[in-house]
C-alpha cells in the first residue's frame, strides 16, 4: 500500500482525481440549477471534434507526437462550442434540447471525419471518449492544477452572483447584474471543466462527474451553498475511490467512477425515501393514538 502511494504514477492519478472530483460538481451545481444538466455532454462532444482537429493539425504540421495538439484543440473547440450554445439559448434560436442534439451528433460526426482525414482510426479517439488517467503525465497534472484553480476561483468565488442569475434571471436583470456575461461565465466554466476532466473520465462520461455528485447532494441538503459543498465532497470521494479500486482490479477508471456515482445516488435516494416513509408512519401512528382535539375558534 505504501509502495503504491509513493509510486509517481499513482500520485499523479490521485492528484488529478481529487482535482476533477472537487471542481466538476461546482459547475454541475449551476447546470442543474439552470436545468441544463446535458450541457456538459453537448460541450464534451464538441471537445471530441476539437481533439480530432488537433490531431489533424498535428499531422499537417508533421509533429513527432501526433496528438500533441489534441488537448489544446479540445479546449478551443469546447470554449467556442459553449459560447455558441449559450448564444443560441439566450437568443431563443432553438430549444435547449434541440441545441444539445445538434451538438451531440455534430461533435461526434465531425470528430470521426477529422480523425480519418488525419490518417488515424477511431481507436485513437477511444482514450478521449472514455478517459485514460493511467497515461497522465506531470504536464497533464500541472495543466489540471491551473484549470482547477481557475474553476474554483470563479465558480466558488462568484457563487452569489452566479446563483442569482441561474435562480431568477428576471430579478438579476432588475438589480443590474451583468446577466449575459454571467451566463457566459457558466458556459465557459463548463467548457474548461470538461477539458480538465477529459483525461479522467472521457468526454462521453464527463457529465456524470459534474451532475451525479449534485444529484446525490441534493437529496440531503436544503441550501444552494451546502449542495455545492457536499457535491464537491461526493465528487472527490467517487473519483478517488474509483481510481483506487482500479489499482487492484483491471477496470476502466472513468466508467467505474460514474458507476460508483450512480450506485451512491441509488443508495442515498432509497435510504432518504425509507427515512421519510418511516417518519410518516410514525407521525400517522401518533396522530391515531391522540385524535385531534377541536381547537378554540375552529369552525366545522
Amino acid at each position: 500500500m505504501i509502495d503504491l502511494l509513493t509510486d509517481p504514477l499513482v500520485q499523479r492519478m490521485m492528484i488529478v482525481a481529487i482535482l476533477v472530483g472537487a471542481t466538476a460538481p461546482v459547475v454541475g451545481t449551476y447546470l442543474v440549477q439552470r436545468r441544463m444538466s446535458l450541457l456538459g455532454d453537448g460541450i464534451g462532444h464538441v471537445a471530441l471534434a476539437g481533439v480530432a482537429a488537433g490531431w489533424l493539425a498535428g499531422s499537417w504540421a508533421d509533429l513527432a507526437q501526433q496528438d500533441a495538439l489534441a488537448i489544446p484543440g479540445a479546449i478551443v473547440f469546447a470554449i467556442v462550442g459553449a459560447v455558441v450554445i449559450e448564444r443560441m439559448r439566450a437568443r431563443g434560436i432553438a430549444a435547449a434540447d434541440v441545441i444539445m442534439a445538434i451538438m451531440f451528433y455534430g461533435g461526434i460526426a465531425t470528430g470521426v471525419l477529422l480523425i480519418s482525414a488525419a490518417g488515424g482510426s477511431n481507436a485513437n479517439l477511444m482514450g478521449y471518449l472514455f478517459g485514460s488517467i493511467s497515461t497522465v503525465s506531470w504536464t497533464d497534472v500541472w495543466v489540471t492544477v491551473a484549470l482547477s484553480i481557475a474553476i474554483l476561483v470563479v465558480g466558488v468565488g462568484l457563487r452569489a452572483s452566479l446563483f442569482a442569475v441561474t435562480h431568477d434571471q428576471e430579478f438579476a436583470h432588475s438589480v443590474g447584474l451583468p446577466v449575459g456575461a454571467l451566463n457566459m461565465v457558466v458556459a465557459v466554466l463548463a467548457a474548461v471543466t470538461i477539458t480538465a476532466s477529459m483525461r479522467v473520465v472521457g468526454v462521453l462520461l464527463v457529465s456524470g462527474v459534474m451532475i451525479l455528485p449534485v444529484a446525490v447532494s441534493q437529496i440531503v441538503t436544503r441550501s444552494f451553498s451546502r449542495t455545492m459543498a457536499v457535491a464537491m465532497g461526493v465528487g472527490v470521494a467517487i473519483c478517488v475511490a474509483g481510481v483506487a479500486i482500479t489499482l487492484f482490479h483491471d477496470l476502466q477508471p472513468g466508467a467505474l467512477i460514474v458507476v460508483l456515482g450512480v450506485v451512491l445516488y441509488a443508495v442515498v435516494a432509497s435510504s432518504a425515501g425509507l427515512v421519510r416513509s418511516r417518519r410518516r408512519r410514525r407521525d400517522h401512528a401518533v396522530a391515531e393514538e391522540r385524535p385531534l382535539e377541536p381547537t378554540e375558534g375552529a369552525t366545522a
Binding site: T29, V32, Q33, R34, R35, S37, F163, T166, H167, D168, E170, F171, V214, Q218, T221, R222, S223, F224, S225, T227
Partner: peptide, 14 residues
C-alpha cells in the same frame, strides 16, 4: 412562477 431552479435554495440565500 418566474423564480426557482433545479437546486434547492433557502429563503435567506434568496
Amino acid at each position: 412562477a418566474s423564480a426557482g431552479g433545479g437546486v434547492t435554495a433557502t429563503a435567506r440565500e434568496v
